[in-house]
Design a protein around this nucleic acid. Structure first.
Length: 225
DNA sequence: CCCTGATTCGC
DNA sequence: GCGAATCAGG
């Protein structure tokens, strides 16, 4: 394969778009990712953050001394990783904290080296490790538990839990966005989408001679980011 | 080991 | 100019 004008353009746009060299190589076909990288450099394309040069900072600061390695030979059960904080800092509906590690399987209940988890009622769990000499202080239980309210953005929208075979499952927006939801209109019987979205999802098979070539993509192609 | 991009160097 | 081989970090 040679670097035709079209292929170079495709390389340029995808490179600028943030596609990896591997993705570009696969997209173009007939070239390796090395070829893509080499070409990109020869073209003078802006270099992108390299994993190798990530921390490439010379004499910026007086060489942060290597933090004294805190001895941690005991990985003990990690605390449940905190859920990523949502962008919207406010108006966060109260979430019941129930994500405590499950009690170790029934087998060795009396294992002296095991960490014990004890339910303290609706407040959650407490943990007592073998080295803990003092009794853990149970958290004060919340006054009351209220069902979590969906955020305002999706209050009246169709969520994942609302899906069934009678409603349109066409996604609206993108997963992770605060207002991500599904279409929810009555589904076209036998199809997962409503009539409108079926029109988007399915195309009638036309005779070859009647097909039109797809229009050129404006930039880089169907890559969303 | 998988991935990544950068660089080198023989062709 | 090209790209495989190699390097080196995540």
């Amino acid at each position: 394969m040679s670097w035709t004008e079209e292929r170079i353009e495709r390389l340029k746009s995808m490179w600028a778009d943030g596609s990896t060299a591997s993705q570009i190589a696969e997209d173009l076909g007939g070239v390796s990712r090395n070829a893509v990288i080499g070409k990109a450099h020869r073209l003078g394309l802006e270099s992108r953050p390299s994993p190798v040069k990530a921390g490439e900072e010379k004499e910026k600061k007086a060489k942060a001394p290597p933090a004294p390695r805190a001895a941690k030979p005991t990985p003990v059960p990690k605390p449940v990783p905190a859920a990523p904080e949502p962008r919207a800092a406010e108006a966060e509906p109260p979430r019941p904290v129930v994500s405590a590690p499950v009690e170790p399987a029934q087998g060795k209940r009396s294992d002296p080296g095991a960490i014990q988890y004890r339910s303290v009622g609706p407040g959650g769990f407490i943990r007592q490790g073998p080295g803990d000499t003092q009794a853990p202080i149970p958290p004060a239980p919340p006054r009351r538990l209220v069902p979590a309210k969906p955020s305002a953005e999706v209050a009246d929208k169709t969520s994942l839990l609302d899906l069934n075979d009678r409603v349109c499952r066409w996604p609206m927006g993108h997963p992770g966005e605060p207002d991500f939801h599904f279409c929810g209109n009555p589904a076209n019987p036998g199809y997962p989408y409503c009539v409108d979205h079926c029109g988007v999802a399915y195309q009638a098979q036309l005779p070859r001679r009647d097909r039109r070539p797809p229009p050129p993509l404006p930039f880089g192609g169907p890559r969303v980011r």
